[in-house]
Simulated assay, not measured.
Amino acid sequence: MNIVKAKDQTLLLLKQTQENNLSLVSAGVAFYGFLSIFPSLAALISLYGLIFDPANVVEQVNALAGILPPEVHSILQQRLSDITTTDAQSLKAGVIFGILLSLWSANRAMKAFSEALNIVFSNREQRNFIQVNLVTLALTLASIVVFIIGMIAIVGVPIVVSYLLSQSWAQIITGVLSWLLFVGLVVGLFLMLYRFAPASPRYEWREHLPGSILATVLFLSASVAFSFYVSNFGDYDEQYGALGAVVVTLFWLYIGAFIFLLGAEINAMRIEPSDDLSPGYYAEKQQRESIFPSRP
């Protein structure tokens, strides 16, 4: 029975991804994500520089080299280096004015995530322009703060562990704790986006946990696998020339967006419709069923 149920759930998941055009939607999210990379990095540097030395960001991002495709890591590293070499006076000006400007520019990606999640959860957008932008700006800022916490942990965990344990044990424990903390932060980030990015209804946190965990595991695994493929078998530079790094970055973002939305699809399948669902849910559901009738 479990095998039959798992098969039915898998077939239903495939049907839902086709009905929601998940591949096409993921491509749109990846495009807006790419446009938001540099503004997000600028906001990251400005916020991080309020407390720490901005130059440390480049070294800490190098810790993610194992899960990022080389071209993606190269783009991030180069851009971060360019930003952090700005003189201190410019960075202060960036703190005063640049953070808001960078957040507004980076907000395009979060809006794309919000629209994509509305499609997955069959929600009709009922928030006005101001409400949508306030929510997505808050989520953009929160996402950057989560990334900053992750970078602080990359530095802080080895220091604490080395102080408490011997050098041999410290290396092992540091690696395990760093990865566990990183995975936990990604799961928490996905939970936050699943919970607040789409329009109502608001489901409980626990309802979004399975999809968040599965999406995190799949995303990290896919990132490592894609990085290995690009490093050993990919010939994007030969095919696309100077645009090779851009293509790799877009494709990596597409993979991440698809997996993220797949986790949302899994959550949507698990959540039973209740009386507090928005009217838009039923309208969209009936319209979808009329366009994609179930096969006998």
Rank of each mutant, 00 (worst) to 15 (best):
H73A: 14
P70V: 06
Y194K: 01
N20F: 06
M110N: 07
S227D: 04
Y229A: 03
L220Q: 09
V155C: 04
E284D: 12
L101C: 10
T216G: 07
Q131Y: 00
I173L: 14
K5C: 10
P54T: 02
A222S: 15
L11H: 04
L137D: 07
F38E: 14
A142Y: 03
P54S: 10
A245K: 09
A6P: 08
I130C: 12
T10M: 06
Q286C: 01
I154V: 14
P70A: 11
F190H: 10
S227P: 02
R206G: 05
L35I: 07
A170Q: 11
E289G: 12
V187Q: 13
V132A: 03
V57L: 15
V25C: 09
E289T: 13
N133S: 10
R108P: 09
V95S: 11
T84V: 15
R206D: 05
L76C: 04
S212E: 11
A225V: 13
K7S: 15
Q9K: 12
L193M: 09
N2D: 11
L218K: 12
P201F: 03
E125I: 03
A109W: 04
T140H: 02
V120F: 06
L22S: 15
L117C: 00
W205P: 04
Q89K: 11
L243T: 15
G256L: 09
S168Q: 13
N56Y: 11
Q167D: 15
A138L: 10
N133Q: 08
N133R: 09
L220G: 02
F260G: 09
N128C: 00
G94Y: 08
N123Q: 11
N133E: 13
R108E: 15
I144F: 00
T174F: 07
S81N: 13
V176C: 02
L101A: 09
L13E: 07
I130G: 05
G211F: 00
V186R: 02
F196I: 15
Q89R: 04
V25N: 06
T249Y: 00
Q78S: 12
S143Y: 00
E204W: 08
N2K: 11
T174C: 07
G234D: 01
I67F: 09
I96Q: 00
V29C: 08
A283D: 15
F190M: 08
S168H: 13
D235Q: 13
S143Q: 01
Q287W: 03
F97H: 02
L103C: 03
V146Y: 12
W104R: 01
S23R: 03
E204S: 13
L180D: 05
V224H: 10
V135T: 14
N21Q: 14
P198H: 03
G188T: 00
A63T: 12
